Amino acid sequence: IFTMKHLVFLLLLSSVCFFALSEVVDNNFSKCKEFFLDTAPPDFTPPVGVSVKPICQCIWDNNDKQIFIYATLYSTTWKIPVYSAYVFRESKSIGRCDVWYIEPQLDGDPEPCMRPKGYGSKIGTNQAVNNDYENSGYDKGHLYPVLHTKNHLSMLATSTLTNAAPQNKCFNRVAWLEHERAVIEDLESCDEAAYVVTGVVPDMQAPKLYNRVTVSKYYWRATCCLKNSQYTGKGYFGPDNNGQVQELTIKGLQDKLSGFYQIHIFPSIPC
């Protein structure tokens, strides 16, 4: 019997870029807690009327085994992620495959694989699609960036619209890019793996893209790792008034975010 799985396999063979897969899971990220420091996801309280869905971002390897790459808390109301969480161990120069996918499960499709838009009449009800960004003047801004990936599979898994939000082009391509590179240098001095959470503050005053997708007002990042056997954390927030990225303590970052929503980024271990 020719099944959807067979179709996906044939499409994989015909494409240089493999399809990423994701899975919408329970509120505790039960299948991908390893991407959070001490397996504890951030304590996040969504604003009134805002719905969120946890996603374990994963792919199939060459042995048809599902491998989880990172975790995302996605707002189906804003149609952008609240945050993505990942573990940084090393960064390698990986060629980018800029094909973007959607998560059909967010729109009630039983197909578990992330795939291009085009299947099912309800796709896009609860999430952004590529058409939302066309001629918008905004970049698709990665939360888990390609620069922080270590292999081809993790690079592919970042290219999902559940890991991106509309980001000012200049900020994305200059100040935020420089920040991502600086974070690599900082985390390479960790004793072992570093835990990273990168999020977005929505701009509730800006017009939505095609009256659907909320634009990001700020991007933020929190890192924590052992340095000299002591947990060390840093927070980042931007753009500031000069279009740059501001470095903060984790508490300072959480205080700044408290003006928009409540989040405790590393709830079990102080950084």
Rank of each mutant, 00 (worst) to 15 (best):
D191I: 11
K251H: 00
R89C: 13
L11R: 15
L209C: 06
S258E: 11
L106H: 01
F68G: 03
I102A: 00
D132V: 09
P267L: 07
E180I: 03
G252P: 04
I94N: 06
G95Q: 09
G235Q: 05
P42L: 05
N211I: 05
L253W: 05
Y195G: 01
G243K: 10
P145S: 13
T45D: 11
C56D: 01
P166Q: 05
S154P: 00
L257S: 05
K169P: 08
P112Q: 06
R181C: 07
K5H: 09
S258R: 10
K256W: 00
F260E: 02
I80F: 05
K92M: 12
F9A: 14
E90Y: 10
L13Q: 14
S14H: 13
V200P: 01
N135L: 09
N135K: 13
N228S: 15
L147T: 11
L147Q: 11
G137D: 06
P110G: 05
N242W: 13
T3G: 01
V196G: 06
E90D: 13
S30E: 12
L226T: 10
Y70T: 08
P202K: 07
D107V: 02
P104L: 10
K208R: 14
L37M: 14
Q205L: 11
A164L: 08
R89H: 11
P166H: 04
T223M: 02
K79L: 02
A222W: 00
N130F: 12
I67L: 14
Y219H: 12
R173K: 12
N241K: 10
I263P: 01
K150F: 14
V24E: 02
L248Q: 02
I184Q: 09
N172A: 09
G252W: 05
P41M: 03
W176K: 01
S75Y: 00
V87S: 04
A193R: 14
D43V: 15
S14G: 14
N126S: 07
T198E: 05
L253R: 02
G199A: 02
N172V: 04
S22A: 12
G235S: 07
Y101V: 08
F44C: 03
E34T: 12
P145W: 03
T72K: 00
A20M: 13
P81K: 04
L209R: 04
I94C: 08
D64S: 12
A193I: 11
H179L: 11
L177A: 15
P81M: 00
A164I: 05
F35E: 01
N28G: 13
M204L: 15
P47F: 00
P81G: 00
F29Y: 09
W100K: 08
L12W: 13
V215Q: 04
C58L: 11
L11W: 12
G49F: 09
W176M: 07
S93Y: 13
P104C: 10
Q262C: 04
